[in-house]
Design a protein around this nucleic acid. Structure first.
Lengths: 330, 330
DNA sequence: TATGACCATGCAAGCGGTTGCCTAAACGAA
DNA sequence: TTCGTTTAGGCAACCGCTTGCATGGTCATA
């Protein structure tokens, strides 16, 4: 059986509350007493029981990261997993554990159970789970949304990358490279981040340029079809900003079928920098986000909320452009 | 303040131990009493405090999944994240939470703190973390290794996919397709699973066939170099079994540079079925593993160990071959 | 020497549950 | 009616730690 605080106290010849005080450091204790206690701890290989400690001070010592995944793919989602990595690191630094919970279709329940059963001190949620009803239900429980919520008037903290600015960056880059007619392909406009990307795209277009926007399912086949029809129309674009890597793959296929050389006659920039993007032929110029910073900021915002009830904050992180071959017209 | 068991008891007019008994279901309680209690619970929106419960019965209600990652990439590793998904699902089904912990370089410490501070009831470790010293240190604490440990004589449960059989499957497939001289490219033979794949490869080669094995760093550039030298040697292979998707990408590049058509003059099969593999040109025939089953089995083995101290078990899951274009010679 | 200030440590009441033991009520049999 | 059994549910100790309050000892000042 593992040693408890009582064993340490007995061995050190002090009351167990003294041991507790030495542990938490807050309270003046004689150097002599401290040393007796430390040596007893060492001797017994004492480690405080975190469950008991949490019960006593009404905490759980953990934060929950909720995923909204029907299948394993959401977990493999690079955006999610890289952020998770950063969140975990930030949490470890602060002494918190990270509990991951998949809600799937009924993530509301998973969330409620985590909160109501006091399993976590704070939550990180995806926008899809952070519905107003839920937010209201759990009151002012500390939570941060990882991504910008679709419902505009949501009273909550969130951290997101700046999709609008990312799209502007992409369009400006294409103009700079001498492309003149830029289209947007892919995504589902019902999704908030897609709409924001499109907004940025439209913002950055030249005054007189018509927006060409075609949405499609996020698989290469669909994007290829959409790309072929776009590229063979009479006013075909000479550059395409793709909503994701799957769309970009489809466009590459379409261009290949139509014998349009990339980047000479068609420039491509894609959102997301999945490992994939680097290894296509040609390699894809990508709008990348600092997922590590994203996760770190998210976690830190949450810790602030937990430890001293700060007000809600919203953070937007700028995207950067990774220049690769698909838009590198000399 | 959230309602406690005492509030429920008071409202229902019974002793709080009775409420506890109704909750856990074990004990005969009059229907009438039960109903009073249920209605009080509903009225107060009572949810048991899991921390208190855990303290009382000496558990933590969570399992730990340890990752050994220096950077975010290990988290994005499809093998890991898909397994994690399945582990989480299995855990949720059993009422356990999943705590993820990244050890990084000193994962030993993370593991110890989880165990010694009673934060988890069981652990899932990668082979890199499951060193004999650690295993010994935490005694017979329930743990399962996700992957086959490199140290042969390790007294522990583990679950892995059958790398040896996967390699055999690949070689047989290539022979069946009419390829005759099969090489193995990629990987680091210091890693146990690479060695096991190579063993399977050698097993399946025809009696008189010489093994051609070239290892290299797992990036396309290195694999491309290795592939070019292999393919331009005087006894070049007509098929290559790649240790991973990066190696396969490199081989595709090498073949392209040397104008060797795939699959007509060169067949390729790769280990791992990352999203990437499907979208190369040509699409890669891949040795795939059921990561979902892998995670589920791992979790279930752990729960068995936690709930009734079963003996250690080792499970090997068979790999399957996903036929795609890169080996599809008609 | 008496007085108060100060400080290290002991004491005990929680935190919110679980569970072994005990009791009183209910019931059946004689 | 009486006694023995059964059993629903009350009682209280316990899980291991935190923390407000009480206490006794030390020291400086008057």
């Amino acid at each position: 059986m593992a040693a408890t605080i009582h064993d340490v106290a007995k061995l050190a010849g002090v009351h167990y509350s003294t041991v507790s005080r030495v542990q938490n450091g807050k309270a003046k204790i004689t150097q002599e007493t401290k040393e007796k206690i430390y040596s007893a701890m060492k001797q017994l290989d004492y480690h405080p029981n975190s469950v008991a400690r949490n019960l006593a001070n009404g905490l759980s010592g953990a934060i929950g990261v909720v995923v909204d995944a029907k299948d394993a793919e959401a977990f493999s989602n690079v955006f999610f997993s890289r952020s998770l990595f950063a969140i975990e690191r930030a949490a470890q630094l602060r002494g918190y554990n990270v509990i991951i919970a998949n809600g799937g279709s009924h993530s509301g329940n998973a969330v409620e159970s985590l909160v109501l059963q006091k399993k976590v001190d704070g939550l990180i949620l995806p926008p899809s789970t952070a519905k107003p009803a839920l937010i209201q239900k759990i009151g002012d429980f500390p939570l941060v949304i990882l991504g910008q919520p679709d419902t505009g008037r949501l009273c909550a903290s969130w951290v997101d990358n700046n999709n609008e600015q990312g799209a502007e960056l992409a369009v400006e880059h294409l103009y700079l490279k001498g492309y003149e007619k830029i289209a947007y392909l892919g995504g589902d406009r019902k999704l908030g981040f897609v709409e924001r990307r499109i907004k940025g795209y439209l913002n950055a277009l030249r005054k007189d340029a018509p927006g060409i926007i075609v949405t499609c399912e996020s698989v290469p086949e669909q994007a290829c079809l959409a790309g072929m029809s776009m590229l063979s129309s009479k006013d075909a674009p000479d550059a395409i900003l793709c909503n994701d890597n799957m769309a970009a793959l489809g466009v590459i296929q379409a261009a290949r079928k139509l014998n349009i050389p990339i980047p000479q006659q068609l420039g491509i920039v894609t959102f997301d920098n999945y490992p994939l993007a680097e290894f296509t032929d040609p390699a894809l110029t990508a709008i990348d986000i600092d997922t590590s910073l994203l996760g770190e900021q998210t976690a830190n915002l949450l810790f602030q909320r937990i430890e001293r009830k700060t007000t809600n904050q919203q953070i937007l992180l700028s995207a950067v452009l990774l220049q690769r071959d698909s838009s590198d017209r000399k």
